[in-house]
Each structure stands twice: as C-alpha cells, then as structure tokens.
Amino acid sequence: MSAPTPGRRSRWTIWLPLALFIGFVALVAYGLMAPGERDVRSAMVGNPLPQFTLPAGVEGTPGLSRADFTKGEPRLLNIFASWCVPCAVEAPQLDTLAAQGVPIDGVAIRDRSEDIAQFLDRNGNPYRAIGKDDVSAVQLGIGSSGVPETFVIDGEGIIRYQHMGPIMERDIAQIMSEWRKAKEPL
C-alpha cells in the first residue's frame, strides 16, 4: 500500500552512483589527456636574490656574487651549462640581447672551466661575469629547476621575472620589456 510512494521518491537516487562513477571516469580521462603544466616555477619572483659568492667560471671573466646585482642597474642572470644542448640554442639570442645593451651574468651549473671555455669559444660570450656553481647552490637558492633559465634582476637585487627554457627569437621582445620594466623599482 505505502510502497509506491517511497519508490517514486527515491527513483532518481538509483542513478546517483552511476553519475558519480561517470564523473570520476571523466575526471581521470581529463587528467590523462591534459597533462597540464609541468614546469616548476620559482616562487622567488618578487623577492631579493639570496646571498652568494661564486668563483670565476673561466679565466678572463670575473666571478659573480650578490653584490654585483645591487648597483642600480637591472641585469639578466642566465643559468646555463656547457653540457646543456638548449643552452647552445639560446646563445645567439643572448648575443642579441647583449648587443642591445642588456648586461648578462652567467651561472654555470656543475661545469668544468675548460668545458665552459670551449662552450664560449663555440657559441660566443655574452657574459659580463660568470660564476661557477658546482653543487647547484645558487640554482636552488633562487628556485630555478633546470638549465637554461634566465632571471631579470632589478638594480636593488630583487628577482623580477623568470624565463624557463631556452630564449628563442620570439622571446626576445618579452625579455627586453621585462628588463626595461625592472628599471622602475617595485
């Protein structure tokens, strides 16, 4: 007698588990097909460069320390290595930036002086100074997760912008504009 009423009322709940299941499958399928952002970006943008002092990477080019970044002029900090193939790919673009008057300093990651020298002979040397970072200490300190990476540092030593991966032709305008922006204090 009373059976039809609760039956009708709960009819839609029969579909609830199926709907949940389909929703779950859709979520998994979406996760599989759209792997999403894999870059781990630095959380240090907007913060001051940490303290560091690195010995010179090659003879004839000075070493690098934090003090070089607090002289009132924005600079690029380029994380590179002679063993890194994309670093050779971005070398012409670094030359272009240097030719346009952008000061660039390099941090060579886990590299030997003779290898760095050979790399610069082959690809050109756009750097004002090169520090040799044998244990990735500066790299970890600024939240960089690979080579090559390029940071814009303003005249007070504040990290203003991070570019991940090699700088290609199409990135030059963006880097230039970030460098110009860094002339104004935050």
Partner: peptide, 8 residues
Amino acid sequence: LVDRYGDY
C-alpha cells in the same frame, strides 16, 4: 624549499 619552489 617551499619558499623557493612552492608547495609542489
């Protein structure tokens, strides 16, 4: 490390 790389 979280300060440098985020929660990830």
